[in-house]
Design a protein around this nucleic acid. Structure first.
Lengths: 154, 154
DNA sequence: CGCACCTTTTACGTTTACGTCAATTCTATA
DNA sequence: TATAGAATTGACGTAAACGTAAAAGGTGCG
């Protein structure tokens, strides 16, 4: 008789305390909610980026883990390595002002921004070269298909 | 008494036919001329992208190899994999019109161009998100350094 | 009671383009 | 001839972020 809002996620097969409104989720739901695989969540945990609670051996993720995962995914999105992300997260201290953490994040961000801009320049360059090559190839193809008609049939 | 224009490259320790004006170069000079390592040239050969002649066991590169290497480097620059480059090069036939080769190159180029444009979009997105995060972090830092002066000292 | 489904740990595999020894050989030169 | 400078092949290492079994445990439901 322990109903846990059966309309939300139909994968609730375990007995999780529904007291504080979906306090814990297991790995499957967590993965679905953030569009990652189970392997990814376990991998992040293995790398020390996540630290879900345990019910026996079953991982239980709280909103704290969700916040951390969001940060990880944002970090990855902007091109940080997991190592970088971990370095920054490890500096988090809920009791302090986190000045060090913020400075490190800002420092890393500036460098990453520079990398991204360099990458964009490289890509623009590549696009230019590729477009150039393509127009040359197109011309060559035109010559090879038009020439026989002009010299033999014309 | 076999002089091979000693002013050019001072690394000419072997006896290479200088008849046709620097017909052959060895791997060291080749690497220097194109800014790659010896390892790279051997690797490309191992992958079937280059096929230098041999004098015994010594590799001898001709202008044909140079042309191929130029193409390889161009391909890498615009983001093709070596596999792709090889596929395209393998279709080269000095006796034909190479229509197939050109079409394949064009086809691959179009796809690669699309990939590059998508990458650029992703990078632009990342730059946007990162800049956004950075301004937030800056604000947080300002709060944390300004607040104590305003609330405690003010 | 048994199936289907979720979860667990362990651990090797994948991808790409080389880097980095290591051991050896060849050659020209002083 | 000793030495230094190329060159050779062979083979393991690297980086990043997971993928992909494999083998097994737990559980609610019909």
């Amino acid at each position: 008789m322990k109903l846990v809002s059966p309309g939300e996620a139909a994968a609730n097969t375990n007995d999780i305390p529904a007291e504080a409104g979906e306090e814990f989720v297991r790995i499957g739901e967590m993965a679905k909610k953030y569009g990652v695989t189970l392997r990814t969540l376990r991998f992040y945990e293995d790398k020390g980026l996540l630290n879900p609670h345990r019910d026996g051996s079953t991982r239980l993720y709280t909103r704290r883990d969700k916040a951390r995962l969001k940060l990880i995914l944002l970090g990855r999105k902007v091109g940080f390595s997991l190592r970088d992300v971990k370095q920054m997260m490890d500096l988090y201290d809920p009791t302090g002002t986190n000045t060090k953490q913020l400075r490190l994040a800002l420092d890393k961000s500036e460098k990453q921004l520079a990398r991204l801009q360099k990458q964009r320049a490289l890509i623009d360059d590549a696009i230019g070269e590729l477009s150039n090559s393509m127009s040359i190839v197109r011309k060559m193809l035109v010559e090879r298909t038009a020439a026989p008609q002009a010299s033999a049939a014309g």
